[in-house]
């Protein structure tokens, strides 16, 4: 059985989609089932995905908007703004959280992907399975504003606490918005 088939067998009905690109397998699971899925992948006697390498956040806003612009150019002003709202509703959720898993015994890697809509930016934490997720989850919160439910210490990691934005979002400008850090010394 290939790794892909093994993952399919392990996740069963929780698997939303699975894809392979250049040998990297990405399995998509529903957001609220992520803890169960990762536990299942870890405890599976054949897969043994027992090591969490990293947690990655991705903002797909620019990716979804790009083909739309192209289509607009083609269709020019035939049927424009009215169905804009309908198109927006069709778009897949804006954010993604990707868990990089590794099997130490078999030396195989895979990614588990969770889609997070803008209206509901909460994902269950996986720090209960691996403590390695502590800082990566804090960073994803810091950079994208995705909250991890049940995280023991969800503060900002790289930016300071009262920084008002989430800088890795695609609508945040590269130059920043002129935020300054004011240190307040307590007595």
């Amino acid at each position: 059985m290939s790794l892909k088939q093994q993952i399919e067998a392990c996740l069963g009905s929780d698997l939303v989609a699975i894809s392979e690109f250049r040998g990297d397998i990405v399995a998509e699971v529903p957001k609220n089932r992520v803890v169960n899925c990762l536990k299942a992948l870890r405890d599976d006697p054949e897969l043994k995905m027992d090591f969490l390498s990293d947690v990655i956040g991705v903002d797909n806003k620019a990716l979804y908007e790009k083909p739309k612009k192209k289509a607009k150019k083609k269709a020019e002003a035939e049927e424009e703004p009215e169905d804009d709202g309908a198109k927006k509703a069709e778009l897949p959720p804006r954010f993604e959280v990707i868990y990089l898993l590794l099997s130490l015994e078999n030396n195989r890697r895979m990614m588990v992907k969770v889609r997070v809509p803008e209206e509901d930016l909460v994902v269950p934490t996986v720090t209960t399975i691996w403590k390695a997720a502590t800082w990566p989850e804090r960073e994803v919160y810091d950079m994208f504003g995705i909250r991890f439910k049940g995280h023991p210490d969800l503060r900002r990691l790289l930016m300071w606490e009262d920084f008002g934005a989430h800088p890795l979002r695609k609508d945040y400008p590269l130059e920043g918005r002129g935020e300054e850090r004011h240190l307040i010394y307590e007595d």
């Binding site: 990297d24 990405v26 390498s53 990293d54 990655i56 990089l100 990614m111």
Partner: peptide, 27 residues
């Protein structure tokens, strides 16, 4: 598409996750 590649750097596993979107810049 998206890939992750890791090597053994002097400090340990140094990996890069890169997502491409068809342009000349990484997404």
């Amino acid at each position: 598409g998206e890939v992750y590649h890791a090597i053994e750097s002097p400090n340990g596993e140094l990996g890069f996750y890169i997502k491409g979107d068809g342009s000349d810049k990484p997404y």
